[in-house]
Design a protein around this nucleic acid. Structure first.
Length: 884
RNA sequence: GGGCGAUUAGCUCAGGGGGAGAGCACUUCCUUGACACGGAAGGGGUCGCAGGUUCAAAUCCUGCAUCGCCCACCA
């Protein structure tokens, strides 16, 4: 705290503090033999990305757990880096070229890839800088990129091993094709959306009538695919069509003869019960086509225009072709009807273009054998999801897993390490580039043109970033990593695949013990935050307004077990104010330490015992809350303790003892410093900057000191537990009740703040009188009380208001200012409230079922409460009688 | 078609079988030597609806409604 300004200024603090962390080398960890490390790998943001709210939330969560673990003294490492993001990056670079009026095909593959690297060099570290601004304590000296040479080696190793194990194969299949990105996509990269469309009923004439029937009507949502129809399918048991099976239909517009086949896939209740089958353009039709040995006629080009197989429609865009085909069929009287129909249409997750199911040669991973051990790992708890319910989502997907299409027709990415021999047709997967065919020796060998799905490389992140497959001691030391925190939308794309590949390549060891699925951040209207829709909030702006700590703490306050988070900026405002509160409370403590000598805190007063007891409780609950990833709960605990207990009560009462000097001053200084020190440690993971800045100014004994709060010790809850003190908590609770009651009188009767009060306690026994004498005196100033007396036989002074707290009457003389009617009204409403409560208790306590079945301690508690309420009611009624 | 989540104060949300909570907003008072990004005192809720279990339900169970997600090869 170099300057003692009365408000915390994040901008002047964050830069220098971060720099000092970097200089101190606290972000890196050393291998310490025999000590289990803590390791987290960051979900690598896309190189094309800049920080959005999801990142802000996710990386705050990771930094909180990482900083906490680092403070416990474990070697702690947070691996950072970026993802090459195949499609996203390629799109960016293509856009750049387009602005210059060029296409990637014009510049060629080699130059295009070079342009991608160039793009990464220019923009790739933007997001890393933003993580630093947030205060994230990643190991920035060891930054990874999924296209690093060593990472490429890992990818090739994985591909080749899986290929050789028969888990990777090539096949001609219906895949999801994005005509704009011009690449295949995996099933989970397709986003389905309901679209208002039509179900067109088309009449297909029979070549020759059968049993008086001369046509069959089919229903379709994609009429343009009819150009590639290979047969008509009906259900074998469908009486309507039984006679037609085996006969031939003349495909309209194309004039092709196609058969009617029977296949049990067909649902007789849908549409007309007759399905046009287009094996090259629909996965189900593909299967039917296989069963009936039909031709697979591909009527579409890669850009979704109609191919040369499409006769007169060749060259038309798919939707123009649709219109024209409908019109032409209508003109020929073959359009029977057009029904409105809502159906689900797949869109590209990168560019939102409608995808086309398309027949092409692609590479696949056989997932079932990989999924089985990964299911078991979650089943038996080796990998635990938080919240637990996500396990079911994981199981459902894993148990129904389908093969993964991993080839992409892009240029930016890991090129598939398979070499084709043009001479003999041999195909070989190899870690090293292949110059000559190992089979025939020919040199006419070329590498496969396709690159791998970006997620193929991302799935290796937890071990490729530790140096695998090279023999690297870090793999043995840091793998498995400790926790993975991520958004739910990449549970399948990334998390599940990391478990599968991680186990496969690390002797069955899972890649992480815990998975945190954090809530998705939505805006105030409950809409997804999106830059393009302008519905987002920029974390950089938020840090500008609230400081990095304010943003972080404000986010932590909002993290609960829910699956959505409607972002509330007010929480950030509270958090900024909280940082300021911490700053000023600390400033107050430091201002009163000029004569301070560090030393152990010793509780001298009940207040000391109380705050230490509360601190012990806080410490336990914060550690437990972080262990179970209950960030919202932890943030609230810290906020309540620091503001409502330490500031509002302990510091306020400390003021008197500080002024008193001598031993009183020394003892309260010790406790003030000790509690502040511990609280700052507990707060540090969530608010690293402000806590570090203050902590460095604290005069601590050599044993407690460290070069940085980042590497200072995490409070030991077990050691602090010795301060637990129920008696002190009860006692201070009572005092708070009394002080608050007296303040309420002051407020109600508009007594000037400066008016010092002389109050009288009517106690119920000598021990209570003694308690008032001993304890209340220390806190009298908080109520503006200058003097007080207490006694069993105390009498109420004339013109005084009465406070009833904890079964005691406290009389506050008002010098004739009492508005008796107001006081009577107040007492009347108080009496009503109390008698209502009393009724409830009495009903409960006279219920035989309750007395027979409720646990004894509940009954005892309720009896005590009832007695208390009854007593208070009696006192209030006595007051009322007096006023009447 | 399956599954999941949400429904509590004006707003954002905690809580979770035994006297309804926080932050913000609101009302009144207070620039007192830590802090007006502050202090003090207040007002405000039949905890979505209907059943059920229980001595006791905002809390557990069942159904329903509304909103939102996810999965699924209904042409």
């Amino acid at each position: 705290m170099s300057q003692m300004s009365s408000s915390y200024d994040p901008k002047s603090v964050e830069g220098p503090i971060f720099e000092s962390w970097t200089k101190g080398g606290y972000f890196s960890a050393e291998v310490v033999e025999g000590v289990r490390p803590y390791c987290v790998v960051i979900p690598p943001p896309n190189v094309t990305g800049s920080l959005h709210m999801g990142h802000a939330l996710n990386n705050t969560i990771q930094d909180v757990v990482v900083r906490r673990q680092r403070m416990t003294g474990r070697p702690t490492r947070w691996v950072v880096g970026t993802d090459h993001a195949g499609i996203a990056t390629q799109n960016k670079v293509e856009q750049k070229l387009a602005a210059e009026g060029r296409t990637r095909h014009q510049v060629g593959r080699e130059s295009f890839v070079e342009a991608c690297w160039e793009w990464r060099r220019e923009h790739g570290s933007t997001i890393i800088g933003q993580l630093k601004a947030m205060g994230c304590s990643c190991d920035y000296d060891d930054e990874w990129f999924t296209m690093d040479p060593s990472y490429q080696a890992a990818v090739r190793r994985v591909f080749v091993e899986w290929y050789q194990a028969g888990l990777i194969y090539r096949g001609k299949r219906i895949i999801n094709w994005c005509p704009r990105c011009s690449t295949a996509l995996s099933d989970i990269e397709v986003e389905h959306e309901d679209v208002d469309s039509h179900l067109w009923h088309l009449r297909y004439p029979l070549k020759s009538p059968v049993a008086g029937v001369d046509h069959v009507v089919v229903a379709t949502t994609r009429p343009e695919t009819m150009l590639g129809d290979a047969c008509i399918a009906v259900h074998p048991d469908d009486e309507r069509y039984r006679a037609l099976v085996g006969s031939v239909v003349l495909l309209p517009l194309m004039g092709r003869e196609i058969p009617i086949v029977a296949d049990s896939y067909v649902d007789p209740s849908f549409g007309t019960g007759a399905v046009k089958v287009t094996p090259a353009h629909d996965p189900n039709d593909f299967e039917i086509g296989e069963r009936h040995d039909c031709a697979k006629i591909n009527v579409m080009n890669a850009d979704a225009t109609i191919s040369n197989e499409g006769g007169a429609y060749a060259g038309l865009d798919r939707y123009e072709a649709r219109k024209k085909i409908i019109a032409d069929l209508d003109a020929q009287g073959l359009l029977v009807k057009t029904d409105d129909h809502v159906h689900s249409v797949g869109h590209c997750y990168r560019c939102h273009t409608i995808i086309e199911p398309w027949l092409s040669d692609q590479w696949f991973v056989d997932m079932k054998p990989l999924a089985q051990p990964a299911i078991e790992a979650v089943r038996d708890g080796r990998v635990a999801f938080h919240p637990k319910r996500w396990e079911n989502v994981y199981f459902h997907w894993m148990e129904n897993i389908r093969d993964w299409c991993i080839s992409r027709q892009l240029w930016w990415g890991h090129r598939i390490p398979v070499f084709h021999c043009d001479a003999c047709g041999e195909m070989v997967a190899s870690i090293e580039d292949v110059e000559r065919c190992p089979k025939c020796g020919s040199s006419s060998v070329r590498q496969d043109e396709d690159v791998l799905d970006t997620w193929f490389s991302s799935q290796l992140w937890p071990f490729a970033t530790l140096g695998w497959p090279e023999p690297d001691p870090r793999v043995d030391y840091y793998y498995p990593t400790s926790v993975l925190s991520t958004a739910r939308d990449i549970l399948f794309l990334w998390v599940a695949r990391m478990v599968m590949s991680g186990m496969y390549f690390n002797d069955g060891k899972v890649p992480f013990d815990d998975v945190i699925i954090h809530p998705t951040v939505f805006n105030a209207e409950g809409r997804r935050m999106s830059k393009s829709l302008g519905t987002g909030v920029d974390p950089l702006d938020l840090m500008e307004h609230y400081g990095a700590d304010g943003m972080r703490f404000g986010l932590m306050l909002q993290v609960t077990g829910a699956q959505d988070l409607k972002f509330s900026e007010e929480k950030l405002l509270s958090s900024r104010n909280f940082a300021n509160k911490i700053w000023n409370a600390s400033r107050f403590v430091l201002m009163n330490l000029d004569d301070y000598v560090p030393g152990e805190p010793v509780a001298h007063t009940v207040a000391d015992r109380w705050i230490l007891s509360r601190l012990a409780d806080l410490s336990t609950r914060v550690s437990e809350g972080l262990d179970t990833y209950e960030f919202g709960e932890v943030a609230r605990l810290l906020y309540d303790f620091f503001w409502n207990e330490y500031c509002d009560w302990y510091i306020e009462l400390a003021k008197g003892r500080l002024h008193e000097g001598g031993e009183a001053r020394e003892s309260v200084q010790r406790v003030l410093v000790f509690v502040l020190d511990t609280a700052l440690r507990l707060l540090h993971p969530m608010m690293p900057f402000v806590t570090e800045e203050i902590w460095r100014s604290l005069p601590l004994s050599a044993a407690d000191k460290a070069p940085s709060l980042m590497v200072a010790g995490w409070p030991d809850a077990a050691a602090l537990a010795q301060h637990a003190d129920e008696g002190a908590e009860r006692s201070i609770g009572r005092i708070i009740e009394i002080v608050t009651g007296i303040r309420a009188v002051r407020s109600r009767y508009k007594l000037p703040n400066k008016a010092l009060l002389e109050v009288v306690f009517k106690t119920q026994g000598d021990s209570e009188r003694q308690w008032v004498d001993n304890e209340f005196g220390q806190m009298a100033a908080l109520a503006g009380v200058s003097s007080f007396s207490a006694g069993v036989d105390a009498t109420k002074p004339a013109h005084s208001a009465t406070v009833i707290a904890s079964g005691m009457e406290v009389y506050v003389p008002l010098e004739g200012l009492v508005d008796f009617e107001a006081e009577a009204r107040r007492l009347t409403s108080e009496a009503q409230k109390l008698s209502g409560e009393l009724d409830k208790f009495n009903r409960k306590l006279s219920n035989e079922g309750f007395l027979a079945k409720a646990s004894p301690d509940i009954i005892a508690k309720d009896r005590a409460k009832a007695a208390e309420v009854s007593e208070a009611l009696g006192l209030v009624q006595a007051q009322l009688a007096e006023l009447a």
